[in-house]
């Protein structure tokens, strides 16, 4: 059985419908890329999964538990954790305190402050600083670290390479090998399609709120993807 099983999900954004009849699965330990143009509904979908968007209808099961109408604070305790777009760190908390916020209601698991610092050594150096004093890449590492601190079974990453230098993006993506070694499944929402494909096993492409393509990440025809990404 899939770890995450989404069936016929409809998501609304005020009066507008943002996602239509979405089917989506992630197996235990799997890495799945979710790509699509701006405004395709990727972020809305992730927010709805973790319970930050309340206007949703359809079946969503995580590890067999129905989470379709569960509030965000309960979803996170099950181990479905999002790294939000734009990092959204807590500005008046130090980096270390930001990381500790991830462990407030943590599941049992192997991620600790120590291990996050081993994964991103720069964070240990900057542990007493505030997010505003860090570079974008370091902030992104802190946001990922905060999510890891709660020992996720499935990590949802929203646009983690946005606005970062290629070298930094490279470094962050390298860390995924470590993260996945724990058996953590990952969903990557990315603008950078090439990188997303290289890191994942399966891909979903969203177009105007609907799944326009799904299949294995490797061996995908470029024109097939272009068509699914831009339509027509």
């Amino acid at each position: 059985m899939a770890l995450l099983d989404v069936n016929g999900l409809q998501i609304f954004y005020g009066d507008l419908q943002a996602v239509f009849d979405m089917n989506f699965t992630v197996a235990d330990g799997e890495a799945v890329a979710l790509v699509g143009a701006n405004g395709a509904g990727k972020s809305t979908f992730l927010k709805a999964l973790v319970g930050l968007n309340e206007e949703r209808h359809g079946a969503v099961h995580f590890d067999g538990v129905d989470i379709s109408q569960m509030p965000a604070e309960e979803v996170s305790r099950l181990g479905l954790i999002m790294v939000p777009e734009g990092r959204l760190l807590f500005d008046s908390l130090t980096i270390e305190e930001n990381l500790l916020m991830g462990s407030v209601n943590r599941r049992k698991g192997s991620w600790t402050l120590r291990r996050v610092f081993d994964l991103f050594p720069i964070l240990e150096e900057r542990r007493r600083m505030f997010p505003g004093q860090l570079s974008g890449g370091q902030q992104q590492m802190a946001a990922i670290g905060r999510a890891l601190m709660s020992n996720p079974r499935l990590l949802l990453c929203d646009e983690i390479s946005l606005g970062l230098a290629p070298v930094v993006v490279e470094q962050i993506y390298r860390s995924f090998a470590d993260i996945r070694r724990e058996g953590t499944a990952v969903v990557l929402v990315e603008q950078d399609v090439k990188r997303a494909l290289a890191t994942s096993e399966r891909i979903y492409c969203l177009l105007k709120g609907r799944v326009s393509l799904t299949g294995p990440a490797q061996g995908l025809q470029p024109e097939q993807l272009t068509h699914a990404y831009f339509g027509n």
């Binding site: 930050l52 509030p71 965000a72 604070e73 996170s76 939000p84 500005d91 407030v104 209601n105 709660s150």
Partner: peptide, 11 residues
Amino acid sequence: DRRDIVRLSGV
């Protein structure tokens, strides 16, 4: 700081 994001930590 961020009322919504603390919910992701189960708060």
